[in-house]
Design a protein around this nucleic acid. Structure first.
Length: 512
RNA sequence: UCCUCCGUAGCUCAGCUGGUUAGAGCAUCUGACUGUUAAUCAGAGGGUCCUUGGUUCAAGUCCAAGCGGGGGAGCCA
């Protein structure tokens, strides 16, 4: 488009070195010294330090700048100077300043906050550096996903959000009133995706999904976004090939286009780079069970021993933290310290104490995980901890395929070689991020499908339209579902899925 | 639904085996400082210790119930 804005953006400063610019934005931080005020301005495209000098702007504007509250909105004019010490490498020497609004008592302070407080102020929290970076990665992930599918002959087709029945029959759904009859918020667009694949060959849906489970974990949401491709004439092997190429393409795109954001987030990109370079291991469910139970090693690594070593390492780390806390406390108690030094040590102690809390939580969880891994029985679904145990042994995403039929949904195709199994696949991300993709070849035989619907006790009437897809030109086909937020979580390295979506909805949280 | 941890200033937290008037940092306000990076320094204001009940001469601290929250299990992406 032709340029509309009569002002410049922080992201453009590098093109204006030595020149005058006009910036419009918000005061994300302010410090002052005699005759100088340092404003860290943010405008959505980035952050830049702007220096207000009393001699350049005069007493009146200087006083105004000195009093600006955090998140005040301002317009600044000034000269761009290169300065290696600054974020982005540039700063602005302000010659004129106009305050749009002087904001008072911004609730989010320049210090640590608890999760609950931050979620309560999510509408403001989104302005902070980390959240800003996460949202930019999210945007690029969405863009890269569309790019990949659009470039490879897939049509984007949306599934309905109101549905008359549950897809898998197992999960709790949100019930609403649809002109007098009960309707459920969609928990998956997959069945509709299959109908569209029979019309267009290769399609994908990209929409919100809803689960009413009262989950209280760092990787569950009540409302999240799912991408569900569906391909006619694909079997499970082709499905897995697609999943792998797709994930590699999106990861590569993010590594290329979100360098700055990943750096801001302090993300170690080793595993992301691995995901682009290394072939994803494909592990049969039976092998996964043996690996989890510690009966089969992977590249010389044993699951139980690895977990026990992790436990030992955590204990050592905790002891180290406690030692440092004691040392710093003793130093403070000894006295003779300047106030600033006391504060510095006190802050260190606070950080360490929080670390110890986190470690304690892991120390109570891991023994339970060990117990669950040792006693894992063939035929069960992998729990969150089992996923961690398994992925801990690999350096890139792992695909577990051929699952026991009982633990998977009715629409998955039974393996003709052994009917105990269905041709499903779960993709587990490394670094403890767990299941990011669930996919399968679909049952294309109408008789088997009817049998499964009956066995699960699902209402046959609701599935008649779906069975039509098998009555009229049934073909082998496959697809998968990808959780956008879990994907974003893994890319950004964040510990909580609630940070991966602008306004998270989860058990107990409907506002803001 | 189950297990587990937590609830003290606007925010993050300390407060020991119950014992004077409830503590710190940040934030806010006043002042100092011409290069700060969560700036620093001096000072000021700021409290229903989640609620209810109990034990006690005495409860932020102990006990019980409730409410709210974190993490995990189940369920899944």
């Amino acid at each position: 488009m032709n340029r509309i804005e009569p002002f410049q953006y922080i992201s453009e400063l590098k093109d204006h070195a030595g020149a005058q610019v006009e910036l419009r934005g918000w005061v994300s931080n302010r410090r002052d010294s005699k005759g100088l005020v340092f404003i860290v301005l943010r405008d959505g495209t980035g952050f830049a330090q702007c220096v207000v000098n009393e001699e350049s702007v005069g007493a009146e504007q200087f006083e105004a700048a000195k009093r600006l509250g955090l998140e005040s909105s301002v317009i600044l004019w000034g000269e761009v100077r290169e300065d290696e010490r600054q974020i982005g490498g540039y700063e602005v020497q302000v010659s004129k300043l106009q305050v749009i609004q002087d904001a008072a008592d911004y609730p989010i302070a320049k210090k640590e906050h608890g999760v609950d407080f931050l979620i309560e102020n999510r509408h403001l929290w989104l302005r902070s550096t980390r959240q800003w970076a996460i949202m930019r990665v999210r945007n690029r992930v969405i863009y890269a996903i569309h790019n990949f599918f659009q470039a490879n002959g897939f049509l984007q087709m949306d599934a309905p959000i109101f549905t008359g029945n549950a897809v898998e029959g197992t999960t709790t759904l949100f019930e609403t009133d649809f002109f007098g009859q009960p309707a459920y918020l969609s928990q998956s667009g997959q069945l509709y995706g299959e109908a569209l694949a029979m019309a267009h060959g290769k399609i994908y849906t990209f929409g919100p999904t809803f689960r009413a489970e009262k989950s209280k974990t760092r990787r569950h949401l009540s409302e999240f976004w799912m991408i569900e491709p569906e391909m006619a004439f694909y079997d499970l092997d082709m499905d897995m090939d697609l999943i792998e190429q797709f994930i590699k393409a999106v990861v590569a795109d993010i590594l290329e286009h979100c360098k700055q954001e990943l750096e801001t987030l302090g993300r170690n990109t080793t595993f992301l780079e691995n995901a682009v370079q290394l072939p994803f291991p494909r592990v049969h469910y039976d092998d996964a069970v043996r690996i989890i139970r510690g009966e089969q090693d992977v590249n010389g690594k044993n699951s139980i021993q690895t977990l026990e070593a992790d436990l030992e390492a955590l204990r050592a780390k905790k002891a180290e933290c406690e030692k440092e806390i004691a040392e710093r406390e003793a130093k403070i108690a000894a006295g003779g310290m300047k106030k600033g030094e006391v504060n510095f040590n006190q802050n260190k102690i606070d950080t360490l104490k929080n670390e110890v809390k986190d470690l304690d939580e892991q120390l109570t969880n891991i023994p339970q995980w060990l117990e669950s891994a040792r006693n894992f029985e063939w035929g069960g679904d992998l729990g969150g901890s089992d996923e961690t145990v398994l992925t801990r042994l690999f350096d890139c995403p792992v695909m577990v395929y051929n699952w026991p039929a009982e633990v998977k949904a009715f629409y998955m195709k039974r393996d003709p070689n052994d009917e105990k199994y269905v041709k499903g696949v779960d993709v587990l991300a490394p670094e403890g991020y767990g299941e990011i993709v669930g996919g399968a070849e679909r049952e294309d035989n109408i008789d088997f499908l009817i049998e499964r619907i009956n066995n699960e006790g699902l209402p046959m009437e609701a599935f008649q339209w779906y069975l039509d897809l098998r009555r009229f030109g049934t073909v082998p086909h496959a697809g998968f579902g990808l959780g956008l937020e879990r994907f974003v979580m893994w890319f950004t390295g964040i510990q909580h899925i609630r940070e991966s979506i602008p306004f998270p909805r989860f058990y107990g949280r409907l506002k803001p």
